[in-house]
């Protein structure tokens, strides 16, 4: 590196400013459309599944219910040295 860091920064910032479109902040776009993804709220006052056994199953490693069967898109992810362990 011939240039000092200070010179490098000064030249980079000048370039960056020249490259950037002089539009100011990101346009927020159409007022009616720009509120973003509507992720569901979380707290509710409804009840859950009632008399199902969701809260009673033993999944603490001592009972039979803890059988972690992976059936998802992880099958599509391969390779890597760590996976050799499995």
């Amino acid at each position: 590196m011939k240039k000092t860091t200070g010179v490098l920064i000064a030249s980079a910032i000048t370039t960056a400013l020249a490259m950037a479109p002089m539009t100011g902040v990101h346009a927020e776009g159409d007022k009616e459309k720009c509120y973003g993804i509507a992720k569901a709220g979380q707290n509710d006052c409804k009840a859950g599944p009632g008399t199902s056994c969701a809260g009673t199953s033993t999944v603490d490693g001592q009972g039979n219910a803890w059988m972690l069967v992976l059936k998802g898109s992880c099958e599509k992810i391969v390779g890597g040295s760590l996976s050799e362990k499995s």
């Binding site: 009616e32 509120y35 993804i37 509507a38 992720k39 709220g41 979380q42 707290n43 509710d44 006052c45």
Partner: peptide, 29 residues
């Protein structure tokens, strides 16, 4: 229903929300 309510302004007298779902620091909700 957010988007459709804004666009269509349905005939609903008023809305109710849980304030806990709007206790984020900012953003879309």
């Amino acid at each position: 229903h957010y988007q459709e309510i804004i666009e269509r302004q349905p005939e609903i007298g008023w809305f109710e929300v849980h304030p806990e779902n709007y206790m984020g620091r900012g953003g879309a909700p």
